[in-house]
Amino acid sequence: MLEVAGLEVRYGAIRAVREVSLRVEAGELVALLGANGAGKSSTLMCIAGALRASAGSIRLAGEDVTSTSPEGMVRRGVATVPEARNVFPDLTVAENLRLGAYIRRHDRSAVAEQRDKMLALFPRLAERSSQPAGTLSGGEQQMLVIARAMMSQPSILLLDEPSLGLAPTIVDQIFEMIQALRSSGLTILLVEQNAAKALAVADRAYVMRLGRIARKGSAGEIRAATDLHSLYLGG
């Protein structure tokens, strides 16, 4: 469904992502692992349309989307949750969700239905529906941004480091929800530093190091690989 070939992303003269090729089939949850600075987020942001690719191609269901804008990717069914939990702090939870459904805004009933589904999946959000998003805790904000991305009813979800900065129990809850989304048939590309958690929910994984793909395989294969530590810590 999603095919990335030979991707390169530059920040000025620095190549943060080099010759990255990966594949995500429909219904899969693929994890993109690696240490800080390995280029995972840059790869994801490039696929999402927020960063420009200096080389390589991105294909979605056969269509070339390498230079598609972020808005365009959303219209094609790719929703992104960047790291850093970008809720709009002054907008309420409800307004955040409503904005997530922007591309579907004309179909009021479908939007309302999706919103109810999301609030059922994330009950804590339902409680805080008219509160400004900036007053939510970190875990609640993470739930909000995932729910908000789901409001556009995407076929693929790009998730960037959902566990970052959250307490372990909250992380468990988040991953339970990711599992629930996966079970509903959603295709997910998950960038994570927390390899254990990611591999527990993933079908396949890629490990990145210094901008390149260093290892790929099924989740089981990657979990068993002993040089995961060295890949993370250098050497």
Partner: peptide, 11 residues
């Protein structure tokens, strides 16, 4: 508040 994030929601 965050122009890029708004675009990433399809705005």
């Amino acid at each position: 508040t965050n122009f890029t994030m708004a675009r990433m929601l399809g705005v």
